[in-house]
Every structure is written in C-alpha cells, then in structure tokens.
Design a protein around this nucleic acid. Structure first.
Length: 214
DNA sequence: ACGGGGATCGGCT
DNA sequence: GCCGATCCCCGTA
C-alpha cells in the first residue's frame, strides 16, 4: 500500500486518548463555546473501526435570539429539531448537496449552536483523502462541507450525542492563547452578515479563508 | 490572488 | 416554486 504503518498499529489510533468533553461544557453561550472549541479535537469512528481525528481551526456561533441567520430563527421544523434538544448533541443539515456539522449549545428549548467550519487533519488522513477524492491538504477539511465529507458525516448523525465516544465526539485539545484567535463576520450568510461570530486560528493553514488584514 | 457563475437538491413558503 | 450556514472551476491580473 501507500505509506506509514497500518492504522491499527498507530499509537494515536486509540479512542481512550480522546476522552469526550462532558455535557456542561456545551451548556453555555454559543459565542463562548465557539471560541473555546478552537484547538479541540473532532473524533470519528467509522463503521470499519477506523479512527479519524482533526483539530478544530475555525468555528461560527449561531445565536438563539436576534440572529436571523440561525436556521431556528423562525421556530422549530423537522430539519432543525436537534437544535431544540439538549446541549452536546450534533445538528447536521444538508445544503447544496453538502453537509454541515454543528454542536448544539445552551439548555433544551434554546436553539443555539456552533458550526464547525474547518479542522486540521491529525489521524486517519489517508482515509480522509479517500473519502474526499483528493490529497490536497488545503482542500481536504477546510470548509464545513469538505470536513463532513472527509469525516463521513451526514444526516444519519443528526442528533448524535457528542459526549459518548462512539461514532462522533469531541475531545479537549491544547489551550489557545487569546492573541492566536481572530474574529470576523460569518462566511456565506445572507442575513445578519455583519455580526462578528466567526472564530479562527490566526496562523493556521487549515482554515476556509484567511482572516482579512487590518 | 481574487471574483463571478453554475451545479444541485432538500426544506420550506 | 424559491432559496441557501457550499464547493469547484474558469475567467482576469
């Protein structure tokens, strides 16, 4: 085959290395969670046992109130149901034939979330390349639709409990100093486009777009 | 490097 | 019917 040792022998390929972040972490303001999730680890266990891990480099907050870009802005529908559930679960939706992964924040009945927009691939990169049909690291997981394809995330994982290390969960990573974080308006939204609710690692290559100069 | 246009389809009005 | 929390490609420079 290609290169490197078999995944089963890779010492990083051990889920116990990535204990899930507990639920109270998510029961907070989505702005706080979005900022805090930078540097955290997105973990995925595929059907065949393959472990995929990526370090979160870019997030966006979607607020329960006063945010017309939030899918739940006009109330609950079958699609956005997960956002109204308990914190620490996934909200996965499809747009333009792609999927996007969110983490639900705040208590039941308060529909806020954090969109995971980009990660830096750490473990299982070969499998990610197969799923994405590319080996270009700048296009592998830099964007919400791209990273969902690389991690085999679709609507079947909508509502998944992210505090259990089963199919999809988040683990703590290194602390990120405040000066390493940039904040900008969100990407792609057509309403509430001025709100500075996008957070990214300033110096990371693995973001969907560079921070604007200032 | 940057910007515009098209693909594409589920969810909602 | 309309409209994207997107991505990719192809222009220009």
């Amino acid at each position: 085959m290609a290169s490197g040792r078999p995944a089963a022998e890779d010492p990083r390929n051990d889920p116990s290395l990535y204990p899930p972040i507990p639920r109270p972490y998510y029961d907070r303001d989505p702005i706080v969670v979005a900022r805090s999730l930078l540097g955290a680890l997105l973990c995925r266990r595929l059907e065949d046992g393959t472990l995929l891990v990526g370090r979160i480099t870019e997030t966006e907050a979607y607020l329960a109130r006063g945010d017309s870009a939030n899918h739940a802005h006009r109330g609950q529908t079958p699609r956005n149901r997960s956002m109204f559930g308990p914190p620490g679960h996934a909200y996965v939706y499809a747009i333009h034939s792609r999927h996007c992964l969110n983490v639900v924040t705040e208590p039941i009945g308060t529909p806020s979330a954090v969109l995971i927009r980009a990660v830096e691939p750490l473990v299982g990169v070969e499998q990610m390349c197969r799923l994405r049909c590319t080996a270009d690291p700048t296009k592998l997981t830099t964007g919400p639709g791209r990273l969902c394809e690389a991690f085999a995330i679709d609507r079947r994982l909508d509502g998944e409990d992210l505090t259990r290390p089963l199919r999809l969960w988040l683990a703590a990573g290194e602390q990120i100093p405040a000066q390493a974080v940039a904040c900008t308006p969100r990407i792609g939204v057509t309403s509430a486009k001025e709100l500075p609710l996008r957070f990214l690692l300033r110096d990371s290559r693995f973001v969907s777009r560079r921070a604007p100069r200032r």
